[in-house]
């Protein structure tokens, strides 16, 4: 992937496919580190599947949707000296707190660090593609924060869908304006 924001798009698609109604995408940045966390309330994975998702050649039909996405994200993190962690709880294991959390740690100053890229485009693509589910996005850097919570927008818009062209354009502008101040 040319940008980490494309990995974020790819991994978050897994959350939507896992039936998540809310996916939290958090980016935390310091001078040296970048941490990307994608946490959903979807169906979760069993321990057996969880152990194999980082293996690109594990492709039985039940896990086919995972494919190369996680291995590529893991590789991008490890190339910088960082790492990837996945925690997951199925509905059987945890009826209340089920879901999957993928967290990738990057060292920004490493020569093989992939830039974050156009994260705004990733978010608008996700919202447009999955207007029926919610996303909570935060990007923290030096005590400042960019945020977007589609639940707030949904409450405001009532029955106007989030994937309306004008709404997506507004979200794009809203995020870009916040990024100008980050």
């Amino acid at each position: 992937m040319k940008e980490l924001s494309l990995n974020v798009l790819d991994i978050t698609e897994n959350s939507v496919k896992a039936g998540a109604t809310l996916t939290e995408i958090s980016i935390t940045e310091t001078d040296t580190e970048l941490i990307i966390s994608i946490k959903d309330n979807g169906c979760g994975m069993s321990e057996e599947i969880l152990m194999s998702v980082t293996d690109p050649f594990y492709t039985t039909r039940t896990t086919r949707r995972v494919g190369l996405g996680i291995p590529l994200f893991k590789l991008a993190a490890e190339m910088t000296g960082g790492r990837l962690e996945i925690k997951s709880r199925t509905k059987d294991m945890d009826p209340e707190g089920h879901g999957t959390a993928v967290t990738a740690y990057f060292f920004k100053n490493h020569i093989d660090f992939t830039p974050l890229g156009d994260i705004v485009s990733t978010l608008t693509t996700l919202i447009r593609g999955h207007a029926e589910v919610d996303f909570l996005f935060t990007h923290e850097k030096d005590g400042r924060c960019v945020t977007l919570d589609t639940r707030e927008l949904r409450a405001m818009l009532e029955d106007v869908p989030l994937d309306t062209y004008e709404v997506i354009k507004w979200i794009e502008g809203y995020l870009e304006e916040q990024y100008d101040n980050l």
Binding site: L153, M156, L157, E158, V160, T164, E166, V167, W170
Partner: peptide, 8 residues
Amino acid sequence: LQAIKDKM
């Protein structure tokens, strides 16, 4: 956003 809603 409210204005967009009313228009849409």
